[in-house]
Design a protein around this nucleic acid. Sequence first.
DNA 1: CTGAAAGCGCTAACAT
DNA 2: ATGTTAGCGCTTTCAG
Lengths: 342, 342
Amino acid sequence: MFESVTIKDIAKALGVSTSTVSRALNGSYEIGTETKKLVLEYAEKINYRPNPIALSLKEQKSHSIGVVVCEVANDYFSQAINGIESIAYNRGYHVIITQTHESFDRESANVKHLLSRHVDGLLVSLSAQTTDTSQYKYLLDKGFPIVFFDRAATDLNTHKVIANNFKGAFEATETLLKAGFTKIAHITNSNNLLISRERLDGFKATLEQYGVEFNAAYIKHCNHGGMIRDEVEFALKELLNMAEPPEAIFSGSDRLTISCVSILKAMGIKIPEQLALAGFTNSDVVQLFDPPLTVVRQPAFRIGQMATEMLIKTIESKWPVEEFSTEKVDAELIVRSSSQKI
Amino acid sequence: MFESVTIKDIAKALGVSTSTVSRALNGSYEIGTETKKLVLEYAEKINYRPNPIALSLKEQKSHSIGVVVCEVANDYFSQAINGIESIAYNRGYHVIITQTHESFDRESANVKHLLSRHVDGLLVSLSAQTTDTSQYKYLLDKGFPIVFFDRAATDLNTHKVIANNFKGAFEATETLLKAGFTKIAHITNSNNLLISRERLDGFKATLEQYGVEFNAAYIKHCNHGGMIRDEVEFALKELLNMAEPPEAIFSGSDRLTISCVSILKAMGIKIPEQLALAGFTNSDVVQLFDPPLTVVRQPAFRIGQMATEMLIKTIESKWPVEEFSTEKVDAELIVRSSSQKI
DNA sequence: CTGAAAGCGCTAACAT
DNA sequence: ATGTTAGCGCTTTCAG
């Protein structure tokens, strides 16, 4: 490896012991002011940097946190990672990112891999396929710090940071209703995901409040979260081929919203004339779409930051954490023309 | 830390020495078949995983690679990181990502931070502000492995993976010329970046080949690479206020292309009727724009993979690497309506 | 074929 | 106030 200065080099150069150097560097009181100054100056001069690996071995901490997301190349997650990174960096942690590609097996393998790397804690957003959360339960029971963000597990007692999905879905549905649509379909991610269930609940609640009857045939679950285009296309075609096809769609995830636009365009369906659309997405370019999209945008950066703050707090807590909190942050509805009645 | 099984536990349980266990685990030949089997089985049974931190300390290798990019929340870089991750994961390396936000100071700090973390090598894409590459020179001279991707330094002798920027720019300009535009402006990133210079060269070469005179006033450099919207807006306004304003724009980066569309829309300028557009971007949703965008798309995922393969090869090379190669990969021109003459 | 011991860089008792 | 030493988990001479 690229050679570097050790505490031993300093000790030798100054004719003191390594422990003296260590004490000086760590600002211990039981050391002479003179010696301390000497060591500090010399260390500065030769640009000494403690070896984090040695520290990790000693402290049994790696100062790294593992991140599990479905994919990096996704507006929501890349923004969240940006937030995670910003906090972790400042707190001296580094971030190891892994992707599940919505597969439970990949997710399990990633968690194992991260643990074998001795990460100090985990920031996870479940894959769409995941129903078995026992590996997390096992870890949490042992006191291992885990914070879920966005896609949390319902049955696990730990810190969570999630968007107010119910409210976001409510507002999106409401804007569609207010625009004059009553036959509204909802295309959403796997029902395994809590976010899907919450968004569906928000959707239903809005209909109820506005006195519109709920039609179960208008709900389509895409279990791969839009990763498979055919799945979305199939759902869309089924909806359009109904005796009474919907007039509007509320889509429940980043990828689904984009897929819907893409597929409808390819099919020659005009938005919003033939089918209006409002959906969750964190893409910042949807106002440039044809038509500009009405979206629910989550504060992904902030969510990443909050989750990381909670995780580091848990990691650095002296006592086993027993009290867990769930932070809920509001998503923002941005109304544009895709949800307007022409 | 979350407890884990060590070689010592196995040794104790089996009544052998730690070195025997180590040898068995590492498939050394100087060990009895019986003992070996015993150890292997027991290790398997109790799910033993070697401590990577201890290994790192011993081997003086961290099995991690540092990545320096301007930002994660950018289509090009998130795709590249995806590629980096895919290779690194398979080769047992983990990836530490840092962002410069186009600032030289952040870049320097990130490199220092990564080094203090003892990464085994660096994958870097320079910030738009960077002109001083002496820190990399210093490291390279010491034999430290660095691979540049996308935004490489000209004066440094090391591995590089870049897109064929000249060709990409040539084709984009050509499609504009063939559509019938002759007054073409070029908005690009800081001239500090080699990619900017190569793209400008490609632009000039096309004009020359098609016998169109080059007009220096049609070249606008945005030194913050589109991070600052006003900068792009100012450039665009200057162009439009010229006595002979351009009929088309060729934009030289992801962020600039998107910014141009966004600003022109806000200004009420119709694309391509009033101003046609073709530009570099890796966004996968630009065909949904109004109008669908003509773009040069780079194989970012592949570039990330190649750079990582080269880096790991260099890291694991027994002998100091003296021969460096520059891999050039083709970008793809995708023609859509933003570059058509109406 | 196997065990003992040193050492990677650092900290923290435990001496002096 | 400073030095000595052990130990974190592992590999690797060096003995036997």
